[in-house]
Every structure is written in structure tokens, then in C-alpha cells.
């Protein structure tokens, strides 16, 4: 299956794709568990979505419709670059509409429009290990996962509350998947965390540089860590989107002048456009 570019369909050779698919299957079978895989060098830099790209390349077929977002928007530079990469190497149809897409590759957001069964959400993950800042050693963190030895994670949350009166983590907020594995949801805002829980879509996570793949299968329990008396809560804004008036979406702050003027607009550009109307 070679395209006009001289590279194989979706860039990766079929053997590599099979290896990645095996890793994905294992990840789906053990929700939240980080599966090591033979991550390949991609023509895009590490840290720029190579994990997500390899996952997408391994699951995409010629009939798929791909949407790529970065910060919720289809027009950010890296989203453009990745969308083009697949348009060029796989020749697949691309879209900006969440509802039309069969695969959505994302960096830092989950779309506001609810996902449905059959859709795949592919997250780009910079650092997959939730225990990394507490324990730098891979050999030790793997042991901690194996033993579900997660007390130290709550130590961090305890410290936040002791110091700030609240849990001071606003993105990449750790979750427990299927009552077993502690997982980093990638740097999505904690606003998006509840969307992961019991989501009908398949959620796949790819970390290229760190060579790990993990997954949340459809309809899986995803719980954000908290204390009974300091429950998890998401961000809220006093404002609405200045463009579409949405009061239920994640808002980006836009500086409009140098005198302190600012407005808030939807971070999810497709959601915003859809509300404004065609």
C-alpha cells in the first residue's frame, strides 16, 4: 500500500504498525496500564506528537475521516502540520467537525461535543508517568504500579491543600482508571477529566519519546483523585464565550489591547463555529 509520496500508507511500514497494534490491544485489555512499545523516529520532532501520530498511523484506514486539534483548535500550527502529514502520507479525508470524524488526534483538549461509539480519540502524551515528579526512577515507578502503591500521589494533593487550601493542579490531573491503574490524562485541563469517564469512544494515548501506549476502552470508569472533604472540581468562568455565548465550554482568554482589555472565547473552535451557525 504505497501512496504517491513513495512512503507506505500512513508512513509507517506494516510490520511496525502491527507491533503498535499489538501494544494498543494490550493497552485496551489493561485499561490505564502503560505498555512499552518500540517507538520509531518520526519525521516530526519528539514532544510534538510523535506518539499520537504513531497510534493514529497504526489504526487509520483509507475510509477514515481524521480531525486533528491542538488546544482545541484545528487551525493551530501543529494541528495543521499533523493533519497535512496524514493527508499526504495516507490520502485520507480530513475534517474540522467533531461529529464527522472517525479518528480525532488531540493535544491538550477533549472536544466539547460528546463523542459517540466507534470514534477513536488519540491523545498526544508528553510524559506518561503520573508518578514521575514524585519518583524519577522508572524501575521504581513500574514497581509502584505493579503493587498499586499510590499513597505518595495523595501526598502531593495533601500538600496542595495544606499550602493553598485547595488542590492546585489545573491540568494533567491524575486519574484512577477502572479502579486499578493511576494514569496521566496528558495535559488536558481538569475541566475535561469528567469527559473521560464512561466515554463511548475509545481513548488511546501515545507517548513517542517515552515509548509508551495506554488506553481507556469505551465505557470505562475514570476517577479523578481527590479527598472526601476536598472533592474534585472543574474550572468555571464568570464569563461566556464572546463569539458564541457558550457558558458550558472551556474558554481561552484573549488579550485585545494593551490596556487590560480581554475577552473569553471557546477553546474548541468547531464547537464555537457550530453554535454560531453556518
Amino acid at each position: 500500500m504505497t501512496t504517491a509520496t513513495g512512503y507506505n500508507f500512513a508512513y509507517l511500514d506494516e510490520q511496525t504498525k502491527r507491533m503498535i497494534r499489538r501494544a494498543i490491544l494490550k493497552a485496551v485489555a489493561i485499561p490505564g496500564y502503560q505498555v512499552p512499545f518500540g517507538s520509531r523516529e518520526m519525521p516530526l520532532p519528539y514532544g510534538w506528537g510523535t506518539g499520537g501520530i504513531q497510534v493514529t498511523a497504526s489504526v487509520i484506514g483509507s475510509a477514515d475521516v481524521l480531525k486533528v486539534i491542538d488546544q482545541g483548535a484545528d487551525d493551530t500550527t501543529n494541528a495543521v502540520s499533523i493533519r497535512r502529514f496524514f493527508a499526504r502520507t495516507a490520502g485520507v479525508a480530513t475534517t474540522r467537525r467533531t461529529t464527522e470524524a472517525t479518528i480525532i488526534q488531540t493535544r491538550h483538549r477533549i472536544p466539547e461535543t460528546p463523542l459517540r461509539e466507534g470514534q477513536i480519540l488519540v491523545y498526544q502524551v508528553p510524559i506518561p508517568e503520573p508518578l514521575r515528579w514524585l519518583e524519577p526512577r522508572e524501575s521504581e515507578t513500574r514497581k509502584m504500579h505493579a503493587l498499586a502503591d499510590y499513597g505518595v500521589m495523595h501526598v502531593k494533593l495533601y500538600e496542595d491543600i495544606a499550602r493553598h487550601g485547595r488542590i492546585a493542579t489545573s491540568y494533567d490531573y491524575p486519574v484512577l482508571v477502572n479502579d486499578r491503574y493511576l494514569m496521566r490524562p496528558s495535559p488536558i485541563p481538569k475541566f475535561d477529566n469528567p469527559k473521560m469517564h464512561m466515554n463511548p469512544a475509545l481513548q488511546l494515548f501515545g507517548a513517542g519519546r517515552e515509548k509508551r501506549i495506554y488506553a481507556v476502552p469505551p465505557y470505562t470508569k475514570v476517577v479523578s483523585l481527590d479527598f472526601e472533604d476536598h472533592p474534585f472540581e472543574v474550572q468555571r468562568w464568570d464569563d461566556c464565550c464572546a463569539l458564541c455565548g457558550a457558558a458550558d465550554s472551556y474558554l481561552d482568554e484573549v488579550i485585545t489591547d494593551d490596556r487590560g482589555g480581554r475577552i473569553f472565547v471557546c477553546s474548541d473552535s468547531d464547537y464555537c463555529t457550530g453554535r454560531i451557525g453556518p
Binding site: Y46, G47, W48, G72, A168, S170, P187, K190, D252
Partner: peptide
């Protein structure tokens, strides 16, 4: 290749995370 990519990925947009931090700092 790993180090250069990851160090330079800071050039990518981080509005969403930054917005979260901004909101948190204001609240604190």
C-alpha cells in the same frame, strides 16, 4: 533527537494549560 524535540516542544501552544494556571493563580 529526543532531548531537542522535547525541549523545543515548549514552542508549541500551551494556551489551554496556561489558562488553567491563570485561573488557579487568580483564584488563589
Amino acid at each position: 533527537v529526543e532531548a531537542s524535540g522535547f525541549t523545543q516542544h515548549l514552542k508549541l501552544p500551551h494556551y489551554v494549560d496556561f489558562q488553567g494556571e491563570l485561573e488557579l493563580i487568580r483564584r488563589l
